[in-house]
Design a protein around this nucleic acid. Sequence first.
RNA 1: AGGCGCGUAGCUCAGGGGGAGAGCACUUCCCUGACACGGAAGGGGUCAGCGGUUCAAAUCCGCUCGCGCCUACCA
Length: 892
Amino acid sequence: MEVPKRFDPGAVEKRWREFWLKSGSFTAKPESGKVPYCIVIPPPNITGRLHAGHALNATLQDILIRWRRMQGRDTLWLPGTDHAGIATQMVVERELQKEGKSRHALGREAFLERVWAWKAEHGDAIVEQLQRLGASCDWSRLRFTLDDGLSQAVREVFVRLFEEGLIYRDKAIVNWCPQCRTALSDLEVVHREVAGKLYHLNYPVKGTAQHITVATTRPETMLGDTAVAIHPADERYRGLVGKTVILPILQREIPIIADEAVDRTFGTGAVKVTPAHDPNDFAMARRHNLPAVVILDESARTTPEAGPYAGMDRYACRKKLVTDLSAAGILAKVEDHPHAVGRCHRCDTVVEPMLSDQWFVRMVPLAREALAAVEDSRIRFIPDNRKNDYFEWMRNIHDWCISRQLWWGHRIPAWTCASCGRLIVARQDPASCPSCGQASLVQDPDVLDTWFSSALWPFSTLGWPEQTPDLARYYPNSVLVTAYDILFFWVARMIMMGLKFMGRPPFEQVYFNGLVRDEKGRKMSKTRGNTVDPLDLMDRFGTDALRFTLAAMASPGADTVLDLKRVEGYQAFGTKIWNAARFVLLNLPEGTEATKPEFRASSANLSITDRWIISRVNAVSREVDQALEQFRYDEAASTLYHFVWHEFCDWYIEMVKPSLIGDARDTLEGRRSRAILLRVLDRALRLLHPFMPFLTEEIWQRLPHEGETLVLVDYPHYREEEEDSDAEKEVGFLIAAVTKLRNLRAESNLPAGLKLEALFHTDLSRPRRIVESHAATLCTLARLSAFRFVAEIPGDLAAARGVIPGLEMALPLAGVQDPHEERRRLEREMEKAQKELAGLEAKLANESFTGRAPQDVVAKVREASRELRERIEKLSRAASELPLAGLSSGPE
RNA sequence: AGGCGCGUAGCUCAGGGGGAGAGCACUUCCCUGACACGGAAGGGGUCAGCGGUUCAAAUCCGCUCGCGCCUACCA
């Protein structure tokens, strides 16, 4: 079979992707009788393109799913997308704008048709991109938050919460985005520090020559002032409470009131009260029955209530007002005042606190249960320090504003009767008013926050409110994998809704992956232009390389820096695996021989080297399993990387080469080596498959194999009987000997190609036996022409000398190397060893150490120091016996 | 203002009370019949600073400095 030197990801990935999809390998098998394992995907926006964060998140889920599937679980990874109210509406509105149209001109119905059309065309782009990543979702169960079933779930939840009084409608100050023209929840507002100013304004007190000075960051809101408030215990203003202030400009008469909420230490201690434009003021106004004057409209322009300032943008108004107030002597002073300003997380416009009618969810009762579920570990967070954030937020929770003044989304199932005014909230659209029987019902124009439907995702996707078999089987989900930045947006709300409507938490574990940052550690953002396109990386380095990088960099709780050099490195890893496989294949001329039962079944008659590599791959199986069990993708990845590259390739393959060439080919050992090569490669491919699905499938299919696809074969598990510490020790010794010989050669600048005869000396039988039984391997790997054991290494021999525990060695270098050079080399080595020894001996001399430290620690230190002493002694003898022409003729 | 996290080799990061690690980069040698996206051998770190606990601290505790992030209705 022709095997190219390099793996070509492009063609291979496409082929397997199609094969997997066609074969139904990813489909859940509810009737299988296997233990279910379910993950629902955090649904990406239909407007989105796959970014590095998705790639990370999906890769981590896919690793879990593929791993569990191979372990024999009935896996369901349920995919889907999110309708993303504001984002999608914005995209389509922009499109309309280019055509010179507006959604208002189009009308609600036509606009929605247009959005659906957009969705049909672009909404699945991200799904295809996830498939390119190799995501083994059950695509037959793909869901969308606006699907009929999911919309039914939304309605059911809304109605039930309303009936229980957990959803209510109220007039309140909400976060309003003047650009998006909708209310936002607290979470959708991002705060950013700005270098603001604090303006001090003198308000004249009626009937006196006095004035009272208020301080504000937003002077334009003075047009909506309906009171001035001071703290009841504030001596400075004691006499003023109950008096009237003449509001400058508008000349409105407003009262001076006393309220506990006023902070005496801030500003002047007197605060202007603008009920329609500040949440605190609104609350205060309720306590004091103050009117609210709305001076800003939905686009944050001043209303007719602003009098001479009507019809202006809020900032233009501020500017003019400040000028005018200053001219009028009202502006007492202006101080620098840095403070945080809230902005719309979608469009970055400064949010305006606005008085309006909105729908809210009463959160405290829902939070109680949600808090308990995490407190008592029915839900476990990984890493669990995220619990602190969760608890903190839950304990200080505010009601959730869920109505949005948009068209794209779940319409609020509430109607008002135009004739009797009754409010109707219903599962089915009502035909007439249950109170007065009139048919003139007007549905609430608003839609729900997209996160309201996302909160139902773990059960709405499984068919709820219908009691489907999927729901019974896959709820609760096994684990949720998501980025920590949506802990409150999504995770917390899913927990509340899951507990409320299913009576059980939606998942057992939540793994929080980090955010992906660029090479400089900055958060990726489109505006910064530092985004890395994962699709581009897949094209350049292969999907497997990208996936492996993401896994290797995913350490719990930490953000991930996506370094291209790293991706490149793991691409090389893929090539390495590919070539190891190539080597194995090239050595299997018949291709089938090694699959004969005699080579697969028993471990009898294996060589020490074979036993060693089997013991190692077995240990690796256990380590990978344990790592994944704890979501330590990074550890699993590095364990596999190290094993495949530095144990299997660097040592095992090199060690068996002598038995695969020439006459050795057809010996029992040769055949056995081929069988073991195949067996270990097969194990490695299985272990690697969840990380690098394409490459491993491609290779596996080329090897003799049973089964249709690697996706569905068993994941290797640890077997006690394969653990072989004797073999590990023996090969460990062999490796140490080879390494030392190579080191001597390199340090003495001996030509790499020159074959040498080594001299060995030992007083022990074991090292000798090991060396002799691995003679061919040792000679090949250390490039020796031969070796022999001697009773003593002659002192006058010109040679590079080395010592490892249990073995002294010498590489004769007659005429090749200067003895002075060799002496300096030995001295350098001794110096190092001396330093190390000094540290150990200081410890051993310390009685509190030998007395108090655990005995095994002391024993280890003793053993180490004994070995060091022995080595130094041997090195020193070797150095002193060197045949130097003159005494101490070295440069020193 | 609170809370959380981080500061370890040139870079990106693991580790987490008893011999400082990985990958990349770097140096030297090698195109050896799987692989030069390769092989072999190396160099490189007062583990941010100060103090404490301990026989032993990069690791635990406290403080300081620097950097992130989250939460917060102080006008």
